[in-house]
Design a protein around this nucleic acid. Structure first.
Lengths: 149, 149
DNA sequence: AGATATCCAAGTAATATGCTTGGGATTGGA
DNA sequence: TCCAATCCCAAGCATATTACTTGGATATCT
């Protein structure tokens, strides 16, 4: 039950963006270089993040992305769900597009999947980008690399 | 971040086994028929469950499987981990074989994955097969089908 | 005009999933 | 003693998913 690279890269990229939040538009090129990710692949991730309203984009020279809201108001959960879809462990209890199941009402195991879904959501919704920034500065107190995350 | 069919089928099959716990050896054939699963595929799942010590097997005619312990003492978590491996969302925080990472000590996002892992484990380890049996009887109070789960 | 960006749609190699197939070994009963 | 039922084991395999790459179009600043 692993996250795909979309979720992992997406959180990294969003934290990178948050750490450079005051510097205006941030290009995917610079994020890709700092985090050692494929720029073209990041494009796809940021298309989803933009559609989810988490980032705003500016095209052209000096263009790039900025967070749509302050880091305190963007949770890891919203980033992950924007990129991975529902974090439910089975599709029948997805918040977005729960797949139909004939015995939905009498399914015993459904209770498990719902609790797992809620447990995961509770964790990721309680972590904001600001929490990650704070953690970052705590870990990198001396050497301020602003680099690998 | 979905479970594979191994985890889903495995929980269903283990609940089926628990519901027939008093009837001696239960063949995969009968479980496969009741739950509409592939018998051959179930063989693979039960190989893992047996290695994990969750079921005991008896070969030959009248053979089959029984739970190794009472349903109260077998958790959904142990079943899922036996079949899916660690439920950690990324491999660097797997309990079993965490993959190496050069920046393990200074990784900011690691905190997220650990919390997700712990959150999921807490949920699934708090649900026993007996809890599912109780739930089953509650939902099927009138018609006692002993069939679909 | 031209460099630097985002945007968008396909294409693709590698990997994982969800089984099936084909055997072998063990056991209980006729 | 034989045979049917069962677990056990290793491979094979079609399909789907993943993790990108490629090739372009469009917008913006200098």
């Amino acid at each position: 039950m692993k996250l795909s690279t979309k979720g992992r890269y997406g959180v990294k990229a969003m934290l990178d963006l948050a750490l450079h939040n005051s510097e205006g538009n941030i290009s995917l090129k610079s994020i890709a270089e700092r985090q050692e990710l494929s720029e073209n692949y990041l494009e796809q991730l940021f298309a989803s993040l933009r559609k989810a309203g988490l980032v705003k984009s500016m095209r052209g020279a000096m263009g790039g992305y900025v967070l749509s809201d302050s880091p305190e108001n963007i949770t890891v959960g919203s980033v992950l769900r924007a990129l991975e879809g529902s974090l439910a462990p089975v599709s029948c209890v997805c918040e977005d597009v729960a797949t139909e199941c004939s015995r939905y009402e009498c399914c015993v195991t459904k209770m498990i999947w719902e609790k797992m879904r809620d447990g995961v959501n509770q964790v990721v919704d309680s972590i904001s980008l600001q929490n990650l920034i704070d953690e970052y500065h705590k870990l990198n107190k001396d050497e301020d690399l602003m680099f690998f995350i």
